[in-house]
Design a protein around this nucleic acid. Structure first.
Lengths: 117, 117
DNA sequence: CCAAGAGATCGACAACCGTCGATGCCTGCC
DNA sequence: GGCAGGCATCGACGGTTGTCGATCTCTTGG
């Protein structure tokens, strides 16, 4: 260690090793979860489902989102694959609902209180 | 309303309107925040900074991430632009630290207790 | 003022993503 | 069984992203 003119402590050898005990799988899974939420349309879908206590079908979501039906189906599939939504077939209609536990788990990843400081 | 053979309640007119009182700016801003976290490398960076109480410089992060220096700089810039990291120049070194408030705000977006159910 | 070195920026390239129209599948009804 | 309609899948296309090597900038030490 030495001290520079401004009194700031600067390590003599700046590049000390930095550990990274998250596995590659961990980071990829976490990134995949956030990737599902990294689109304005999918944020809107999750927000609408969070606001309504009942599931919603594609024919309700499509006009509200002002997108083509294949595009809405595409986003819904992404959210289901990420584990954030659940799909339920009722007759001809496909109803989607929010998995609130999944959203809580996503929030807990960002909880700094779990990390030793 | 009518009831189908399995006793499941199905609205006669399935497609009731679905409201969406988030503005386009809201959803884009939220998506941008998650987009910053939607990459394994950036998850690793945030995780490493969350684990260490001190800021880290690029020359510490680069070998730990096993990526080229321009790539690491690129990811750091993305995280700063998202408001998740802060940059501080100390001599020749650039130190990055986590904005823990920003991470808390990100987590609060996922908090369902704020949403009327 | 010059040389050294840390880090940012640039340009390029491949991979990925959001969007659409067209089409296929599957369920309920006649 | 055949038709209608809700939804998923396909193929295509433009825009974005992650990565790198090369280069530029800026700070420090001599």
């Amino acid at each position: 260690m030495n001290v520079d003119l401004s009194g700031m402590v600067i390590p003599a050898d700046c590049c000390r090793p930095l550990d990274d005990d998250l596995t590659s799988d961990d980071t990829k899974a976490t990134a995949a979860l956030f990737k599902a939420l990294a689109d304005p349309t999918r944020v809107r879908i999750v927000s609408m489902l969070a606001r309504s206590s009942e599931p919603a079908c594609v024919c309700e979501l499509t006009p509200a989102l002002d997108l083509s039906q294949p595009t809405v189906s595409h986003h819904l599939k992404k959210l289901v694959q990420a584990g954030l939504l659940e799909r339920e077939q009722r007759g001809v209609w496909a109803y989607y609902s929010l998995d609130r536990g999944a959203l809580e788990r996503a929030a807990s990843v960002l909880d700094l209180k779990k990390v030793a400081v």
